[in-house]
Amino acid sequence: MKNLNCFQDKTKRSVYLHAIFMSLPAFIAILIFNYIPILQAIRYSFYDYNIISGRMRWVGLANYTDALKDPFVLNSFWVTVKYFLMNVPLLLLFGLILSLAVEKPRFGTGFLRSIILLPVVTSLVVATTIWGFMYHPSNGLFNSILQTLKLPPQGFLTTEKLALPSLVVLGVWKDVGLVMLFFLSGLTAIPYELHEVAMLDGASYFKRLIHITLPMLRGTIIFILIFTSIGAFRVFTPVYMTTKGGPLRSTQVIVMSIYDNAFRYNQMGFASAISILVALILIGLSVIQFLSVRERKSKN
């Protein structure tokens, strides 16, 4: 590129040369690490592919029909949906409450904001480690608190009923700061005059919240809804580190099933088929997200 002199550089040819060479590294990286894997996943999903023995046999749609009949796979879809149904509303609710609490600069809100953001930048592995210890049946912090309050100890991660909700709590703790940030950026877009006018009419805080803030946040809420929904379908690390899907498959989320099939049972074809099913769900969600972001942007 150096031997191009300045005169040529203003020509069309130079624009094209620069466009090509400057976008090439990213273009190739995206091709290799995004597009080719997706195409490969589609291909492998039609094969019975064992990575250890190297066996690769065309099976048509059998992986898909098996996946949709396999009680374990169906169970893991159901577990993921349950996680999603608990996780998303909690994140929305607490994210909103926290953002309203730290919205106006008052004494201590800066500190509060930072402390709520700490889990967002803490690695999920560390968060899971600490929470795993806090949930520990015999030496955990929660059972210590329960005992101090004279309540019976609980097996937070060891009983079928509590394991998934316990992981949901961990997930909410980890991500609520991010949701709060999104709400905060949505809140700053609401013109203060609206509140002033309503206050002149004597509207209380809750009235204003319901009739001004929430309707004005509609775009933000849709965005957060999709964002957290996609996140719920991606949960893996806490499950892998603590319960490995147990007890009795009550926390066997879908990514855990993909991992098990691919890297424990070496069923790459079957795992690819499940991946494609998950990808289809998430693409659907992303399309909605994309449309809602565009709607939000065009409104502003």
Binding site: Q40, Y44, S272, S275, F290
Partner: peptide, 26 residues
Amino acid sequence: RTLLFFYILATLMVPFEARIVPLYLV
């Protein structure tokens, strides 16, 4: 240019978790 834009945008649609297996094979 628009084509390049959508080429990049589309990668946001399939999160990493759905690509682990084929990415590992690649």
